[in-house]
Simulated assay, not measured.
Amino acid sequence: MGNFPGHALPGSFFIFFGLWWTFHMFYRYYIALNKNTKFTSSVIFNCPCLCGRFKDWPIEAYFKLMCICIGFFLEIYTGFSKDWRFVNIGNGQHATMFFFFGLSSVVDILLHYKWPLPPSMDYVSLFLAITVEFILFKFHLHGRTDLDVLLHTLLLYAIAASIISVILEMKYKNNIMCALSRAYCTLLQGTWFWQIGWILYPPFKSSFRWDEDDHEQMMIATMIFAWHAGVNLLIVLAIGGVVAAAHRRFYTYSQEDSYAMKRLINSSSNGDSMVKINEDSESEVEFENTSMLS
């Protein structure tokens, strides 16, 4: 993982799932508002665009497991030398991180198919995976430059925030803010992974080179982390605004269609029957058969 692709790959995974969770959390929240029911979060979410027998498949868990397997085997493969000796211990740490996230995916799949596991085991396995990630990166910095240590320490802050958010979400599953905090912290991890790779292993040649022992440049890196935190918050709010606008428009159209159908039923007296709508409840329709006078 000591190169730019090694940071961009897990960063892309975290960004994807952070955005995926943000969208689905807002989507479920506004549906609950429209139906006047409680919002309830979950570790994984189904894809609403699927249909048929695939509609109830845990697509997210399968996709997450596939991504993690890719990362795991790439770390193992690149950790071997030409004579097939495993020489890169850093790759072993990263592979261990991928393994525990893969274990979390397996638990998600087993719970989906009603295996007799303890309650909230999906949250516990996710908590374990993020905690292992924190421990591995905490003791991953020995002998590094000051800038390298700073960048990964800032990443540790994002990981620690993710751990706290998972605990809060497990405790308060009906709180949208606790759920969104997990998505936000995951997104922050992803964008910061990319930033670490861009600073330490720039993919393009540039006239500007980071001095990894310069204090002023370390201060700049700290400011960049703060910008990541702010921009990611704006992204989460923007997704929420788009989902809210879409739900409001769809709900308004649904209401208009319902009222139009009521007017149509009320006006349809063609000689056989007359329909009377009970306006006190939108879900109840009373039909009265009456004889028409000639």
Rank of each mutant, 00 (worst) to 15 (best):
residue 265 I to P: 00
residue 17 F to G: 07
residue 179 A to I: 06
residue 246 A to N: 10
residue 236 V to L: 02
residue 96 T to N: 03
residue 259 Y to R: 09
residue 56 D to W: 04
residue 17 F to S: 10
residue 35 K to I: 14
residue 147 L to K: 00
residue 166 V to W: 01
residue 148 D to F: 01
residue 273 S to N: 07
residue 43 V to H: 00
residue 228 H to L: 04
residue 153 T to Q: 07
residue 236 V to W: 00
residue 158 A to H: 04
residue 15 I to V: 15
residue 50 L to G: 11
residue 185 C to P: 00
residue 37 T to S: 15
residue 195 Q to M: 12
residue 127 F to T: 01
residue 241 G to F: 03
residue 148 D to H: 05
residue 84 W to H: 14
residue 275 V to I: 02
residue 158 A to T: 06
residue 100 F to R: 00
residue 40 T to I: 15
residue 123 Y to Q: 05
residue 36 N to K: 15
residue 21 W to L: 07
residue 185 C to R: 02
residue 239 I to Q: 09
residue 265 I to L: 15
residue 152 H to W: 04
residue 208 F to W: 11
residue 121 M to G: 04
residue 87 V to P: 08
residue 113 Y to N: 01
residue 255 Q to A: 12
residue 255 Q to E: 09
residue 80 F to P: 03
residue 21 W to E: 11
residue 9 L to P: 11
residue 73 F to K: 01
residue 155 L to N: 05
residue 10 P to F: 09
residue 168 L to N: 08
residue 258 S to W: 11
residue 183 A to P: 01
residue 263 R to L: 12
residue 238 A to T: 14
residue 190 G to N: 03
residue 83 D to K: 10
residue 193 F to S: 01
residue 284 E to Y: 04
residue 207 S to M: 08
residue 81 S to T: 05
residue 114 K to L: 07
residue 131 T to F: 06
residue 204 F to W: 14
residue 56 D to T: 11
residue 260 A to Q: 10
residue 107 V to G: 00
residue 159 I to Y: 03
residue 181 S to Y: 10
residue 256 E to Q: 13
residue 143 G to P: 01
residue 37 T to P: 12
residue 78 T to R: 03
residue 138 K to V: 01
residue 213 D to A: 15
residue 35 K to M: 14
residue 197 G to T: 06
residue 212 E to P: 02
residue 253 Y to G: 14
residue 247 H to L: 09
residue 51 C to H: 15
residue 202 P to Y: 10
residue 197 G to P: 03
residue 266 N to W: 05
residue 62 Y to V: 03
residue 219 M to G: 14
residue 279 E to R: 02
residue 261 M to E: 11
residue 168 L to K: 02
residue 106 V to P: 01
residue 3 N to G: 12
residue 212 E to L: 09
residue 16 F to R: 06
residue 267 S to Y: 14
residue 189 Q to E: 08
residue 206 S to A: 13
residue 176 I to R: 00
residue 220 I to W: 12
residue 228 H to C: 07
residue 212 E to Q: 13
residue 104 S to C: 12
residue 129 A to Q: 02
residue 84 W to R: 13
residue 251 Y to K: 11
residue 237 L to P: 02
residue 115 W to A: 05
residue 132 V to Y: 02
residue 41 S to P: 00
residue 12 S to C: 13
residue 232 N to L: 12
residue 36 N to A: 15
residue 141 L to I: 06
residue 8 A to T: 15
residue 26 F to G: 06
residue 188 L to H: 01
residue 101 F to P: 06
residue 171 K to M: 07
